[in-house]
Design a protein around this nucleic acid. Structure first.
Lengths: 144, 144
DNA sequence: TTAACTTACTTGCTTTTTGCAAGTAAGTTT
DNA sequence: AAACTTACTTGCAAAAAGCAAGTAAGTTAA
């Protein structure tokens, strides 16, 4: 089921404009990156991802991503106070957007980095990468 | 030549994070959309694109896009007070990002619209679309 | 040739969003 | 049972966005 719970009344029906209602800020795609490509899937993991997001902003973004049905918030299996965040099918479908943006940045911006294993996979076998994403297999594992 | 004149010191070397320094707001990709897919290439055209951008915001975004070498600002051939904005090679290279975002929005958000001719071209012959973009041929012409 | 209009801004201000730091209730760990 | 952790909430300051009016320089119309 599609939806777009906008911050405010949509000003335009343009597909791009509507998409930017959701992802047109600095943090949203970074959260999706972590959920999609790594084993970061808890609030604390996302908080410590390295870019310095604030707790109130993370809370707000996670809430909006749920409202857009891009992620799901699940109880932690063994820890009563923690939650697990997981991309929905809709969320997983953002993979090509992230991959293209990552590639553009790598090719066009200075001082920028892609983990070599991911870069190699993007170049060699894009479909295999998408398959890993679809099966929710982290592309790289972090010591969390 | 690559560059990333950040709003502030980059917090992370992540390719995605660096890219979002440039496009992680609501207006930047909409400006690029107009320059890439339509014959809107003047300040006034971009101002009236339909989403309600303010003049100070448009001015600021155009300036940043030039600093990032994504667009060029050229004197108007016949009108001494107007300028023509044009995507650079780097700017044109954002086409796959826009196309993937447009597709995702179309498939996953309600009340959203892609011009049918563009949608058809995306589905039928993505490479032909990219070729038109590279040769700076507007995908649709507006009565400006 | 001059008045009126257009263009791409700039300015000053208000509103909104972001971000900081501290606090909180509920669960976990020691 | 005390101390700590977790995911927030809160109050406030700073930054960004946005509004509306103004501006200098070029164009158009009379």
């Amino acid at each position: 089921m599609t939806m777009n719970p906008s911050r405010h009344e949509a000003r335009s029906a343009c597909a791009l404009a509507n998409g930017l209602e959701l992802v047109g800020d600095r943090w949203t795609l970074l959260i999706i990156r972590d959920l999609m490509f790594s084993n970061r899937n808890e609030f604390g993991h996302l908080l410590k991802a390295g870019e310095g997001i604030s707790t109130n902003i993370l809370t707000e973004r996670l809430e909006r991503l749920q409202q857009y049905n891009v992620i799901k918030k699940l109880p932690h299996p063994t820890h009563g106070k923690k939650f697990i965040y997981e991309l929905t099918e809709q969320g997983l479908a953002l993979a090509p957007v992230l991959i293209e943006m990552v590639l553009w940045s790598h090719n066009n911006l200075a001082d920028t980095f892609i983990p070599p294993s991911i870069h190699q996979m993007i170049l060699d076998d894009r479909e295999a990468l998408y398959e890993k994403v679809r099966s929710r297999e982290p592309l790289f594992i972090l010591d969390l």
